Simulated scan of single mutants.
Amino acid sequence: MRVLGLLSGTSHDGIDVTVVDFSEADGAVRGTVLHEDSVPYEPALRARLVAALPPAQTTLAEVAELDTLIGQAFADVAADAAASVGGVDAVCTHGQTVYHWVDDGHARGTLQIGQPAWIAERVGAPVVSDVRIRDITAGGHGAPLVSFLDELLLRGRAGTSAALNLGGIANITIVSDDAIAAYDVGPANALVDAVIAKYGLDPLGYDEDARIARSGDVDDALLASLLADPYYALSAPKSTGKEHFHLDYVRAHASALGRDVRVTDLVRTLTELTVQTVANDVRAAGIGFLAVSGGGCHNPLIMEGLRAALSDTEVVLADELGASADNKEAILFALIGWCTMHGVPAVIPGGTGAREPRILGAITPGAGPLRMPEPVASVRSLTLN
């Protein structure tokens, strides 16, 4: 079965897409990646999305319009990708998260927009969507869902190993001989990107090659204030997002110092925040092998900082596990789509905190009758090539 995976992450800079051809025998799943790409949002659409995100106020009218416009943008990307491989059997879309509701340490709800009916209409294949909420109804955080894929890729390694994704938010999956844990560590690129966008420091909207951060210095007092955030002391499972870590959050911490902070020092300090929060958790868990993915893995200052702070840990890119460091989450959503179509729960309780695993998502039929494949009992192993 060919499944197309689509998402836009917490950096909300564009749409990642992949097509994976899956086959299965006795629970052993093999996936061949046929296509992968990343397509930026049109600048005007991205500007509208950014303007509507927390802590900004918006309207239901704007949410409804963005739901359609993002759905159409996803549909365009999906149609092009499907055509490039001669068609697909199903699509799984994550959509664009606009709000993740966490209250008193528990996830209460989550909202992803990008109307899947537009994708089904363009591609003609059934579309799995709204994949996080079912996990939340079972007591989970709906995140990090990538822990399902990570556990399969890390399974069988001796000692304690982990997969780290550095998107807008950093999340980690920790796998040992007898346990798995996964959670959101804290901000990865979200705060740096917010500062760069606010001050127009780079037309790309991010700190390419850590150029800006390297021109500044770590402000120790600001870093200490940021590290004192109670979120970091919470026990897993836990999840967070831009509802908590946003530009006004940075401004509040900087203002509390009672003095000005150079913008370059701000970017350098926020970069160091990512390094220290991740390194602290990796050391505490005794992780010997760490596979990194997401946009932050291309930030040399972050990667240099992690390797320097984690001398007892082998730090590599996720490509060594068979999943592209740039496209691992799109592969995840292709896998979730395959699992949902085959009646397989694509979540593990240790990864999200749910009481029990659940089959994820809702299905929008494609051009013809909805025909589900024969159910599969479980996924015992996964090989990607």
Rank of each mutant, 00 (worst) to 15 (best):
C92F: 06
H94W: 08
H94P: 05
G95F: 03
Q96C: 10
Q96F: 06
Q96L: 04
T97N: 02
T97H: 00
Y99G: 02
Y99D: 07
W101C: 14
W101Y: 15
D103Y: 14
D104Y: 04
G105F: 03
G109D: 15
Q112R: 02
Q112N: 03
I113S: 08
G114Y: 09
A117C: 13
W118R: 15
I119R: 01
I119Y: 00
A120P: 03
R122T: 12
R122G: 09
V123C: 11
G124D: 09
G124K: 01
G124I: 07
G124P: 07
A125Q: 00
A125M: 01
P126V: 05
S129W: 12
S129T: 12
S129G: 04
D130I: 12
D130P: 07
V131C: 13
V131S: 04
R132A: 02
R134A: 15
R134V: 13
D135R: 06
D135I: 10
D135N: 12
I136C: 00
A138F: 00
H141S: 09
H141N: 12
G142Q: 09
G142D: 06
A143K: 10
A143F: 10
A143C: 05
A143S: 11
A143N: 07
P144I: 13
P144C: 13
P144M: 13
L145R: 00
V146S: 13
S147E: 05
F148A: 11
F148V: 06
F148T: 07
L149D: 05
D150Q: 07
L152I: 06
L153C: 04
L154V: 00
L154D: 00
R155D: 12
R157W: 06
G159K: 11
G159I: 02
T160V: 15
T160D: 08
S161C: 14
S161Q: 09
S161K: 02
A162C: 01
A162L: 05
L164F: 02
L164P: 01
N165M: 06
N165Y: 03
N165D: 03
L166Q: 04
L166F: 04
G167P: 04
G168P: 03
I172V: 15
I172W: 07
T173S: 15
T173K: 12
T173C: 14
T173H: 12
V175L: 15
S176A: 15
S176G: 15
S176T: 14
A179K: 12
A179E: 15
I180M: 15
I180W: 05
A181F: 10
A182G: 14
Y183P: 13
D184Q: 11
D184K: 11
V185C: 04
V185N: 01
G186D: 09
G186V: 08
P187S: 04
A188N: 08
A188W: 07
N189M: 05
N189T: 07
A190S: 13
A190N: 07
A190L: 11
A190I: 14
D193F: 08
A194K: 01
V195I: 06
V195T: 01
I196T: 09
I196L: 10
D202C: 13
P203F: 05
P203Y: 06
G205Y: 00
G205W: 00
G205L: 00
G205Q: 02
Y206I: 01
D207V: 04
D207P: 11
E208Y: 15
D209V: 01
A210I: 10
I212N: 06
I212Q: 04
I212E: 01
A213G: 15
R214I: 04
S215W: 08
G216D: 08
G216M: 05
D217N: 14
